[in-house]
Design a protein around this nucleic acid. Structure first.
Lengths: 266, 266
DNA sequence: TAGTGGTCTAGACCACATA
DNA sequence: ATGTGGTCTAGACCACTAG
């Protein structure tokens, strides 16, 4: 019964490091951060460093609690938020795992086009081109690069039941996607974000989209096999990895004659 | 120290009522429901009954814990989920409140169209017509009514900075919106869902949208002041109130020349 | 049988709002 | 000073998985 650790000693210790400092300013907006958010940030750092890879298990809650010197409940709350963000996946009795794009379940998290009738059928991809070039100004801005930095441009067509439906133009930072080539993309089967994970260690965890209706240009119409002027859904997506770093710009044109873009408002 | 309530007595008691029964079947899919979800369901029932109205405070966590004979922590977890669903809003030091559409903050939760440049400006609504008629088959199906049931149809134009941008066609169950009229709608300022709340006691808490690109018909083009054939964003929305009951079908046509539909993928 | 996440409780203290 | 939600801890037990 000696050397009793006073209750909350751990929390006070941990908190004293980085939660006390930014307390004063109000104009700066620097906010107080509770312990479980600091733990969340530490776990995110581990994921960013690649300490645990997509599909792998992270340490148990007890282990993490011991490692960070906090209670299991505090770790639990941090992991709860990461699971709510779809960054971690909990499996009762087995452990907590890093989310991966190599799962049927997750396939339609970033592919919002659904068929009017019937069940979602698997998409097949045909790569049109893959080349490295200097980033145009608008692309550089959205990827937070400098104009002229190296980027990879991929163009491809997605088909459902062999019907071309989506024309994608994808821009990626050249430094992050060194070995990406037309051959590598053509051989690959499965979701592109799965390839990015395993080959380049880039995990897409969030994206913002801007959606418009546009008329098909002659060139786009010819690739998609539709009449020029047909209304198409224009979807401009910026995808982010850990730390809210943009790592992909994707411009898609969707034929919405037999499909629709689904969305839920909560 | 006498008459000590055994630990977990409350949970066993509450659980015994409805969580024990559906335990056996697996083909039925009837799932085990933890206490906090039962509490969540009870709070939802209270909201559905109108026990607490939008904008009002619900009882404190301690009060709810006493009422339902569970610990504060269990109530907390139930309220946490309702807050995550945007059904309740927590305010530290003040209480927990029923979410309402009468708030600037919430204005853009169901209005996803944002301007290309500048800040979102308030929308002004011009009502074209409001009439009661028999539900067409497709409308009846989506509102879970019988074909021929009474419905209210509203058509209106939303403008930003006096520029017509959205043409809405709205269908509502006639029995739920008895006093709704052209006059009432024309006089009202503010979000339509706010009117539905205060005048008809209908809270919209969730919606599903199907989005397409279409060409403007002659009639629609003339109302919106654009050329026929212009690509427009077609947004078909079904809105739900408590208990996942559909209470609105809304078909919108958006001009996306100077605006875009924003969406986040998590 | 052991280890994992899932649930529930109890109590302490902090932060914020209001009277 | 009081009451609200917010955080953190500690410990018990349940449910699921796997060796």
């Amino acid at each position: 019964m000696s050397a009793i650790r006073t209750p909350h000693a751990a929390s006070r210790r941990a908190r004293g490091q980085d939660a006390r400092a930014p307390r004063a300013g109000s104009a700066t907006g620097a906010a107080f951060s509770p312990l479980y958010r600091q733990i969340k940030a530490l776990i995110l750092q581990g994921l960013d460093r690649g300490e645990w890879k997509p599909g792998e298990a992270i340490p148990s809650e007890m282990d993490l609690a011991a490692r960070f010197q906090v209670s299991q409940g505090t770790v639990r709350k941090a992991v709860d938020e990461l699971a709510a963000d779809n960054i971690l996946v909990r499996r009762q009795g087995k452990g907590t795992f890093v989310a991966t794009h190599h799962e049927e379940q997750v396939r339609f998290r970033f592919l919002r086009l659904a068929p009017d009738n019937g069940n979602p059928s698997p998409a097949s991809s045909r790569v049109l081109e893959c080349r490295r070039l200097r980033a145009p100004a608008d692309v550089a801005r959205m990827l937070e690069l400098r104009a002229g930095d190296s980027v990879v441009q991929v163009r491809r067509v997605l088909s459902f039941n062999d019907v071309p439906t989506i024309l994608d133009e994808i821009w990626l930072p050249g430094t992050l996607f060194k070995g990406l080539s037309y051959e590598r993309l053509s051989v690959y089967r499965g979701p592109m974000y799965g390839l990015f994970e395993t080959e380049f260690g880039i995990s897409m965890i969030r994206a913002e989209e801007k959606i418009r209706a546009v008329a098909a240009s002659d060139a786009d119409a010819s690739v998609l096999g539709v009449a020029a002027g047909l209304p198409l859904l224009s979807v401009e997506r910026v995808s982010y990895t850990y730390g809210d770093r943009p790592v992909e710009l994707r411009r898609g044109l969707y034929i919405t004659a037999d499909h629709y873009y689904r969305n839920s408002l909560n």
